[in-house]
Design a protein around this nucleic acid. Structure first.
Length: 736
DNA sequence: CCATCCACGTTTTTT
DNA sequence: ACGTGGATGG
């Protein structure tokens, strides 16, 4: 009896066929992750392949982490030698080593969407592009599309030379790339594009990686775009042991350039491809699977396959059509409470899925009122929050003086009296002399031209230089401490004395913990390393399985996950499928939405709740929507529509009123489980004289506790760090 | 140089 | 409904 005996025939075939190109069409819940992990184990243990020679690409860092862990559990040793990560992380790793061959410096920064927008804004200003006609977002999305297809600015210009409407876009693309290069920065798309360029221009580097990665596996293959495909085909070209796993029915990232043709045409590119279909579903009940099959059946563009299961029929799909979105949210809360309290399940068994991030608001509100622990994934990413970006901009400035964007962001934060006029002067000097922004303010010539704020700029430059001299002597977390202390960033927030400011302080504390965490985990912690890790995390990566909360997220975020009990909310025409796709000329857009619906349904293992509302506020406007056309594709006999029974139950659930729903409660924070948020702890577990432990400062003795407003202020004399004053609610002190 | 106010558009999804 | 960005006045 070997570990492979637990796999079905098809799965075994997929595991044992290690040589040559292999396309695994794996339906939802057909155990593809299991196949991949076992395949890696098989390569190592049975075929004697060196773990060093294996690469696996996943869609999220979380998936990568899980795969590593699972492989680690079946393989005795060496699993840390395997490269398991996302396309983006993989490429960063390669570029950190070799990007100097493309004329960038190896400590390049990675720009997120906001950064891209700032650069584009600047580009438009320089080129006199009227952003009323050409929106930054729009230009960027055209550029991104080009990059997804591996089209350089030059090629883009050539292709569109006769298209007058593209003239400005062509200029913008060119200038945007130049700007990024000047800043020694890459955007998300560049990470892949530049790696492919690197391979194409440097056969020696390509060959060294080809020889290293003799076995390559790609998960969620249906969501790869053209450059990504180019990247893996280059890598796999020599040894041709490329295994891709995907499901055309779950392709939901076309808007991001994912090329469904990659899956439909894989066999053409790799002519001797062996195809395996995994059609047995191990996840869902018969009813849920039937519903999913019925819905997806309506798509025309798909490879034929039929998912089946030997699971029992299971409960019918719970369906309710509520009057208002508030009632819908309350219904979900009621059902979740019942499920957990009466039926003995846990909160983490439940997930609420929706089409748009905005829908999380109502759910959040009801859950908060009813003390249901929950966690919102997505929306505003932790690393996109203002205070976090500010601190990171400091770190980036210290790390890479060429990142003009970062420098400009923080040169006047907190207020130093360096305004737009001064910044313009410096920028002019920088442009004229070909210096970076930061280098300019270190030039006497430039400083002398500034005028009134000269001394302030000098002081700022001095401050950064001081941090630079320290960067190799102290850890990242200490560096952050230093920055927020010297700039007075946190004390300024504290002085504001508002809930929001307190929240921001908490976020900064959180960032410090992440830095500490990074220092402990990384083999060789560096500032660049930390910034990189931070740039590539998705919200979903922070989900942890140990805590007990309901997860709220978009269907997109839910890809690859499964839950015993799924609540699919807002199934209304105009919302899901979205208004955009209903009115689009291209009928294939509806098909993508339908695939999304298919993904949503197939996340459910045991129970599926679907709901919609007649009335809903969208963008401050009350809308009246019909029930989703996708719902009508589910046969009625699979549904439990409740009829009148439900009305008899007097619900004890507090639901938000129309007015309270309009009021924002808290800014949504992706990283916290709100139910347990305590502003002021009734009883601290320590008192004067007690020994306590702090995450960063280590152990110390409590010297003083004073009651201050919403919180206790605790003074601790730390053995190593000295005396510190801090608020009890976020100091996370533990009595020892 | 900075704070405040108003107008606008934004939202479909994200590494 | 919300945040952003531009204009205005101190």
């Amino acid at each position: 009896m070997s570990i492979y005996d637990t796999l079905n025939d098809m799965q075994q075939q997929a595991v044992f066929r290690t040589e040559g190109p292999l396309l695994i069409l794996a339906g939802a819940g057909s155990g593809k992750t299991r196949v991949l992990t076992h395949r890696i184990a098989y390569l190592i243990e049975e075929k004697g392949i060196n773990p060093w020679n294996i690469m696996a690409i996943t869609f999220t860092n979380k998936a990568a982490g899980e795969m590593k862990e699972r492989v680690n559990n079946i393989v005795g040793f060496g699993s840390d030698q395997i490269w398991v990560s996302t396309f983006h992380s993989t490429c960063v790793r390669i570029l950190r080593r070799y990007i100097d061959r493309l004329g960038y410096s190896n400590n390049f920064t990675i720009y997120d969407t906001d950064d891209q927008k700032s650069v584009m804004k600047d580009v438009c200003k320089r080129l006199n592009i009227d952003t009323k006609i050409y929106k930054e977002r729009n230009i960027l999305s055209q550029i991104s599309k080009a990059k997804d297809e591996f089209i350089s600015p030059e090629q883009f210009a050539m292709i569109n030379q006769n298209d007058f409407s593209k003239k400005r876009i062509i200029e913008a693309y060119k200038s945007y790339q130049e700007q990024l290069k000047n800043n020694n920065a890459l955007d998300f798309d560049d990470l892949i594009v530049k790696t492919v360029e690197l391979f194409q221009n440097n056969p020696d580097i390509l060959e060294s990686y080809q020889d290293r990665f003799k076995y390559i596996m790609v998960d969620e293959y249906q969501d790869t775009n053209t450059v990504q495909f180019k990247f893996i085909s280059l890598l796999a070209k020599k040894h041709r042991n490329l295994c891709v796993v995907g499901d055309d029915d779950q392709s939901i990232y076309k808007f991001r350039g994912a090329n469904i043709k990659n899956i439909l045409n894989f066999e053409e590119v790799f002519s001797d491809t062996f195809v395996i279909k995994l059609e047995q579903n191990y996840r869902s009940t018969q009813n849920i699977l039937n519903a999913a099959n019925e819905v997806i059946k309506h798509n025309t563009e798909r490879k034929d396959k039929k998912l089946w299961t030997d699971h029992k029929e299971g409960d019918k799909i719970f369906f309710r059509y509520l009057d208002t979105a508030q009632e819908e949210a309350a219904m979900a809360a009621t059902e979740i409470k019942k499920y957990v309290e009466k039926e003995g399940h846990t909160y983490r068994d439940c997930a609420c899925l929706y089409r748009t991030n905005a829908q999380s608001r109502l759910l959040e509100e009801v859950f908060m009122k009813n003390n249901i622990p929950y966690k919102i994934v997505g929306g505003i990413n932790f690393y996109q929050r203002k205070e976090i970006k500010d601190v990171l901009a400091y770190l980036k400035t210290v790390d890479n003086g060429m990142d003009d964007l970062a420098v400009k962001r923080i040169i006047n934060i907190p207020k130093r009296g360096i305004g737009a006029a001064t910044i313009d002067k410096i920028q002019t000097y920088a442009d004229y002399n070909g210096y970076s922004f930061y280098d300019s303010i270190r030039q006497e010539e430039c400083l002398n031209a500034i005028g009134r704020s000269e001394s302030k700029v000098r002081k700022f430059a001095g401050f950064i230089q001081m941090l630079r001299t320290k960067r190799n002597l102290i850890s990242v977390s200490e560096l952050i401490e230093e920055i927020i202390e010297d700039t007075g960033y946190v004390s300024e927030l504290r002085a504001e004395n508002t809930d929001e400011a307190e929240e921001r302080i908490l976020n900064i504390e959180e960032l410090i913990s992440k830095a500490v965490d990074y220092q402990e985990k990384a083999e060789e912690p560096t500032l660049s390393g930390f910034l990189e890790e931070v740039a590539l995390v998705a919200d979903i990566d922070s989900l942890d399985a140990d805590s007990d909360y309901v997860v709220l997220m978009t269907i997109h975020s839910a890809k690859g996950l499964e839950f015993p009990n799924v609540f699919l909310c807002g199934m209304e025409d105009g919302l899901f499928p979205s208004y955009m796709t209903i009115t689009a000329d291209d009928p294939l857009e509806i098909e993508e939405e339908r695939r999304l619906c298919y993904v949503a349904i197939t996340r459910a293992m045991e129970q599926l709740h679907i709901s919609c509302a007649k009335q809903r506020m969208i963008r401050g406007e009350t809308q009246y929507n019909k029930m989703s056309r996708f719902l009508k594709e589910i046969p009625l006999e699979l549904l439990d529509t409740g009829k009148q029974i439900e009305k008899m139950e007097k619900s004890k659930i507090v639901k938000p009123t129309q007015t309270s729903a309009a009021k924002p409660i808290f800014k949504s924070k992706a990283f916290e489980t709100k139910q347990f948020k305590v502003n002021k702890e009734a009883n601290l577990e320590y008192t004067n004289g007690d020994r306590v432990k702090h995450i960063k400062f280590g152990e110390g003795t409590v010297v003083d506790i004073t009651e201050g407003g919403r919180d206790y202020e605790v003074t601790v004399n730390f053995d190593k760090a000295g005396v510190k004053k801090m608020f009890a609610s976020f100091a996370k002190l533990k009595k020892v």
